[in-house]
Amino acid sequence: MMRVLIVDDEPLARQELRILLAEAPDVQVIGECGNAIEAIGAINREAPDVVFLDIQMPRVSGLEMLSMLDPERMPRVVFLTAHDEYAVQAFEGSAFDYLLKPADPERLRKTLQRLRRDRPPQDMSALKGASELRRIPCTGVNRITLVPLEEVESIVSRPGGVYVVCADGQERFTELTLNTLQERSGFIRCHRQHLVNPDRVREIRLIEGGVAEVRTAGGGIVPVSRRFLGPLKARLSIE
């Protein structure tokens, strides 16, 4: 069974695709998302095999969304786009597939055929340029704030989710996993639950027992565990 997630900001477009996919007996649509943020959460939770992903979406485009996914658990992505501009050029000849809207059922069958055949994960290199993480999507009530990396002091994982700590001391919820953030942002892991932005580190204070804390430019304190103190110092070229 192929587990599929549909991501598109237009309800009718999602509906149309769902109906087209229903014709394939081995495809199971496990959910629909109306924007990239919801989709990140859903992908992290459900780990779908395939994501049908619209490119034009609110605030975070489908392309940018890829940079916010955990590279270890990357689903295979089929892009959907209304007009074949840059996107198509980028994927032409790569392992990626794309569908033009309105989707042609015949064309969709071919895509599914390929998906069944090529089970191994896709080559991500084609998207290298487009997939660099520059801002972290943070969800509030009905809003997405896109926080530029340079404004982030540290990131903390709590039982309730992952939070981005900004220079003003505010914490913002994000759907991105700590692993993804560590991979994509260049922040340093200093604790099992914390990442710190190396550009914002002002001071490392050593405490007894091999642990330490980092004071950030914004005045925040981030704990450093014994296990990560060495690597942190190495990254900051101390000693």
Binding site: E10, L12, A13, Q15, E16, I19, Q56, A82, H83, E85, L100, K101, P102, A103
Partner: peptide, 16 residues
């Protein structure tokens, strides 16, 4: 182009 194809996609769905 974008507008046209999105519109056609929408219409394709609504026809059903």
């Amino acid at each position: 182009p974008h507008f046209l194809f999105n519109a056609l996609n929408t219409i394709a769905a609504v026809i059903r």
